[in-house]
Design a protein around this nucleic acid. Structure first.
Lengths: 149, 149
DNA sequence: TGAATCCCAATCAATTTACTTGGGATTAAA
DNA sequence: TTTAATCCCAAGTAAATTGATTGGGATTCA
């Protein structure tokens, strides 16, 4: 039940972009450096986020990436599901097209998987990047680390 | 964020034992057959459940496995955590001993992982085998499939 | 024109998953 | 007392996944 680095790195990168939302394009390399990630690997992740419309890119020198919309319109769920695919503890409870199982109609374990799935989705859909940003600002005002996320 | 077959098969096997709780030892082979699992693989899983004290075994002919305690005292969380280890979406939020991360004190993504972890644990800790058994009986009385779980 | 950037595709080592194989130990029943 | 049914244990393994790396091409600003 661990998330892969796709979801984890991806959310960090998106928060990095959220912190700098409105400041023009941010080069991938600086995001990768700030977050301590391989830039070529992050490139693969952000390509997925771009294709799904969550970020847009500006090519060429002085280019980079930026959120396509305000942090308050992007949820953690949008990001994680884009990168990890549908979040389900078992194939039979994938929301769009669950794997066929002949016992599905009367399977009691399936009910458990559904509850897990729904509870995870509720959590991640209820948190926006803006919420994370607010937490971040709050921490920043209380402490004196800061420069990283 | 999928569970492995350990947790999924393990829960099915435990429900199978719960259905037959009080009927003496159930051979692994019949559980595996009913649930459509490889018996040698299930053996490995049930060995873990036995070592953790959730089931006990009777050796020799007419032997098998049984729950050590009533289905109402065993939660889905007990079973899944036994088989899968601590359920956390990231290493840094494993409850017993989280992986060290120097940013842990002010990491906002960590807060998200904690919320996911807690919500999953709440769900699985709130469902007992008895609850599943009740669902099962209810389904059984409403339909006329039945023989499998 | 060149440096900074995004874009794309292929390859790869390590790990994990989901088993299989092969056998030994124990016990109830014939 | 033998035999069949069972649990117990350890090792091997093929396939998939993960988390990258490698190598290059296309675009754009200065």
């Amino acid at each position: 039940m661990k998330l892969s680095t796709k979801g984890r790195y991806g959310l960090k990168a998106m928060l990095d972009l959220a912190i700098r939302y409105g400041n023009g394009p941010i080069p991938l390399k600086t995001i990768a450096e700030r977050q301590g990630l391989s830039d070529h690997y992050l490139e693969q992740l952000i390509a997925v986020l771009r294709k799904s419309g969550l970020v847009k890119s500006v090519r060429g020198a002085q280019g980079g990436y930026m959120l396509t919309t305000s942090p308050k319109n992007i949820t953690v769920g949008d990001i994680i599901r884009t990168l990890e695919g549908p979040l389900a503890p078992a194939e039979c409870v994938i929301e769009e097209d669950p794997a066929y199982c002949k016992k599905a109609d009367y399977c009691v374990t399936k009910v458990v998987w559904e509850k897990i799935r729904d509870s995870v989705n509720e959590v991640i859909d209820s948190i926006t990047l803006q919420d994370m940003l607010d937490d971040y600002e709050k921490m920043k005002s209380q402490n004196n680390y800061m420069f990283y996320i």
